[in-house]
Nucleic acid binder design. Structure first.
Lengths: 144, 144
DNA sequence: TATTCACAGGATTTGGAGAACATCTTTTTT
DNA sequence: AAAAAAGATGTTCTCCAAATCCTGTGAATA
């Protein structure tokens, strides 16, 4: 469904948000450990997220990553996905055709459109805060 | 969404079905040309589909691939997907966790489950015949 | 029965995403 | 100002899906 990068991006953002709620700034290492991801690779993804303004990075000793409290309930999953995987999930043809659209649809175009639209709605109506709720009370997990 | 193999598999099956309705048996080359896919790679995928009984292959001169008329409206998209990609699409975790299930769900588990269930329903309720209809009257396409 | 056509299937190569490594830059602390 | 902590960036390595190659086998037909 999503690329590995995107999966890590979502998990990392969720973890940072949980810690930000406790006013903790977290380091790259801590994040990688918490979401069980390769450190160096995670660094690149966090950079992408920081550049697009989804998370904030602070350099230097006692630096790390954080998210402004006011942003936690505003960041939508769709933003993270777009930042990392682009909008191919919404636009891409189910059968991989380059020019698949309403004018020249592939045989499964409309059936897939329905699914994709629902996926889009879901991603646009789910905020990072939604993800933190289950994590805080231990009902959901980021590892294993 | 699907692997390239799977995309080719669906397109090939649809094409073979259209031709089978006209009582034409089609060769590997013709199929590859019709769906704009690499010949050798397509051969492998057709082998898989033939082995699982979704399509029939006939060796020798004037051989090729075909589908029994009585099967065209019975073969479901889900069968093709399972034969090539397995059932990872239904089971796989949205965030790539190995052990993501109702007992230890990831933060997006239930939201994704809904989408996946709908995808499953769609694939199970769409037959190869459904795909052939648009192709025959020129409303849908397999190339470009 | 020899030839040719066409699929079967094992072995191999290629390309790109994912992962790891090394180095440079910035910021904080002392 | 120097050292330490941490992010930024470029390069390399690895692995698997994607694609190809080559040889084997079966069927038609002359």
């Amino acid at each position: 469904m999503f690329s590995k990068s995107c999966e890590y991006g979502i998990k990392a953002t969720a973890y940072i948000a949980v810690q930000a709620k406790n006013s903790n700034r977290v380091s790259l290492k801590e994040i990688a450990k918490a979401i069980d991801s390769p450190v160096a690779f995670t660094a690149k993804i966090l950079q992408q997220l920081a550049r697009t303004g989804i998370i904030d990075s602070v350099q230097g000793a006692s630096g790390g990553f954080e998210i402004r409290h006011s942003q936690i309930n505003k960041i939508k999953l769709s933003q993270i996905v777009s930042a990392i995987d682009g909008d191919n999930i919404y636009k891409g043809c189910g059968l991989g055709l380059n020019a698949c659209n309403a004018k020249k649809p592939c045989p499964v175009h409309y059936k897939f459109q329905k699914i994709r639209d629902e996926l889009k709605d879901m991603l646009e109506s789910t905020t990072v805060e939604d993800l933190t709720l289950g994590l805080k009370n231990g009902h959901t997990y980021l590892k294993r």
